[in-house]
Design a binder for these strands. Structure first.
Lengths: 253, 253
DNA sequence: CGTAACGAACATTTTCCATGTTCGAAAGTC
DNA sequence: GACTTTCGAACATGGAAAATGTTCGTTACG
């Protein structure tokens, strides 16, 4: 078992019972108590849990978005396939706006090796392009990064977006519903997505099946804004059907 | 000997003789020819040298700025001390604009652990703040990063700067001379430095001794723009004396 | 066509990171 | 205030990953 697996186990155990002792977790995972303590420190720094004497308590019971580090481990295979499909929809030479989030981070991995101009809206993706300069051209938007998320938001980001026009925007919404439209967990984030959509000629939505039919609380816009929606086969059939009646092209990978 | 040491040896050997064979370098460093070949590939990717059959040829004979990877290894101790001094000049709660370059990257290391708001003008420094969130608040300027340098330049950067006002700007000029003023190797960079200086109430110059009295070709402004200049004891005495006759405070560490 | 250089593939060494153990200090509990 | 439990620093250990060396077939150049 790798340390990441163990972190996943711990996070899951806490989500189920709300809290756990160091001893319980050591027994559950087969690791020593010292290792569990170190794990708890790591997860606490990621905002997954809160440390209490003798154990830990979960921090993510409410309707909030789970921390980035946790989401990055969910539906990895689906995200990878979705990202490959999104990348194939983009032509060499295009200018691309890339939203924040784990799915779009995967798209960034693909685009790095393509001759395109990319403006990513998250620090993580900027890192990716920055450290190994490939054929792609990187543009950095201004802004204030939101915690571990790395999503750039605020007036500087909006100003950067309003100064540019993109061929394509790849948007990774937290909630996508034919009826309720596109939604995000964070108001600032939603504002950035709105501005991004307004600055691009073509909008591609990238969302794994778990996002379909879900609604977060910050409204971004009607689902008809998407010219193309790329999702996977775990998406609820009725949602996909609802989209197929509209102008949006749905690709299931 | 570490691989980095060896890279330094190779770079130095090439600067002195202009070119060298793989055999020569293997003998010089005590490494195998295969290792030298791999080193040369690495250094070629950094823009330090050009690969030719049988060996390599230097790329940095002209008056150009050496690549970032090379500068990062020069005068490390001096830069560290200068950075510590600059950091001590900054008060908690200030908003700080941080220039690109290796010296300012060291300053970033210090500021990470301080409750200040920082806008760095290079990707490297942004990484630094992004990966380990400390008490500092990070603001990202927009812009287009210049190659391995990571320095953000262009209209987006200028726009980000003109939208903000900073308490202090830390500027790391390539050339600092009492007579010729502040200069940079790159025109775009110089424009950004100018804009940065215009957006800050207090300007701190950070330059190790080798930069004093040197002139690069892109003019930034008169040396009197600097309220404080932090340098080290290797600075030429006559330059330091010239500065001491002006309003600029010189700190030698 | 011959020679030297190259680089892929594998073997080996070294380095670094995750984990475990021990033990003194700190925090709770009675 | 004494006792128990938890905590985390410090060091030891194991294993994975990176760096380096070696071999050998391929490629470039004269």
């Amino acid at each position: 078992m790798t340390n990441t697996d163990r972190h996943g186990l711990i996070a899951q155990a806490l989500r189920e019972s709300g809290s756990a002792t160091v001893q319980d977790l050591a027994e559950l995972t087969g690791a020593s108590e010292m290792t569990i303590r170190r794990d708890l420190d790591t997860l606490a720094a990621q905002g997954v849990l809160e440390r209490v004497r003798g154990g830990a308590r979960t921090l993510l019971l409410r309707g909030e978005e789970p921390p980035f580090a946790l989401r990055a481990r969910e539906a990895v295979e689906a995200k990878r396939r979705i990202a490959a499909e999104v990348s194939s929809l983009i032509t060499d030479g295009e200018t691309v706006l890339l939203d924040s989030g784990t799915t779009c981070l995967e798209v960034a991995r693909h685009l790095r090796q393509r001759p395109v101009t990319v403006m990513p809206l998250s620090l993580q993706a900027i890192h990716l392009f920055g450290e190994t300069p490939g054929p792609a051209t990187l543009m950095v938007p201004g802004g204030r990064p939101r915690a571990a998320e790395g999503a750039l938001t605020g007036p500087l980001t909006l100003a950067s977006l309003s100064a540019l026009r993109f061929d394509t925007a790849v948007i990774g919404c937290c909630g996508v519903s034919a009826a309720e439209g596109l939604t995000a967990y964070d108001l600032d984030d939603a504002a950035v997505k709105k501005a991004g959509i307004a600055s691009a000629r073509r909008i591609i939505g990238a969302a794994d099946g778990s996002k379909l039919g879900r609604t977060a609380y910050a409204y971004v816009g009607p689902s008809a804004l998407l010219h193309t929606l790329v999702t996977d086969s775990t998406a609820p059939a009725e949602e996909v059907a609802a989209f197929e009646g509209t102008s949006t092209v749905v690709k299931t990978v």
